[in-house]
């Protein structure tokens, strides 16, 4: 009986909160590292194909993204189901690519401009027609470093 009451009395000392800041900082760092800032909302469905010979893109600021895919169900009543190009956060036509590239270019320091890469994030189910038109337009605009975005395939 006495033993039981003793145990209940022992609950009073509190756990030290001295390390709480550390835990909070840890969580903060964790989320800082993991979070990817997404600048544009996807209006087309993009599920990139799988490949093995991949290269990592190093500097994020030197990359501009071109999305090609079918509009998501939300946009299908307006834009139909034909594959479309998305630049930034809106649908665009092939003719708008040079302006888009130029807008990105002015934000990059002069010395780094030759290393600007265009990342083509293209849905696997899209036919080559629109991709080809995009490539031709990129070549005409002198943007020759291109990355076909793909996921790693385990062999």
């Amino acid at each position: 009986m006495a033993k039981f009451s003793k145990k209940r009395g022992s609950a009073s000392p509190e756990v030290s909160t001295a390390s709480l800041p550390d835990i909070i900082f840890m969580l903060l760092f964790f989320f800082m590292v993991v979070t990817v800032l997404r600048d544009s909302e996807l209006k087309v469905k993009v599920s990139t194909p799988y490949a093995t010979q991949l290269t990592k893109l190093e500097e994020k600021s030197l990359v501009n993204y071109l999305y090609i895919g079918r509009p998501t169900p939300k946009f299908q009543p307006v834009y139909g189901t034909k594959p479309r190009l998305q630049l930034g956060d809106k649908f665009a036509s092939i003719a708008e690519i040079p302006l888009f590239l130029e807008k990105h270019k002015v934000k990059v320091p002069e010395a780094k401009r030759p290393r600007i890469t265009s990342s083509l994030r293209v849905d696997g189910e899209v036919t080559m027609g629109i991709v080809q038109d995009t490539k031709t337009q990129l070549r005409k605009s002198g943007q020759l470093r291109v990355n076909y975005s793909a996921k790693k395939r385990a062999d």
């Binding site: 990342s119 070549r139 990355n147 975005s149 996921k151």
Partner: peptide, 9 residues
């Protein structure tokens, strides 16, 4: 991260 096949057109 973004990975892919890097090509030079």
């Amino acid at each position: 991260e973004d990975k892919g096949i890097l090509v030079r057109l």
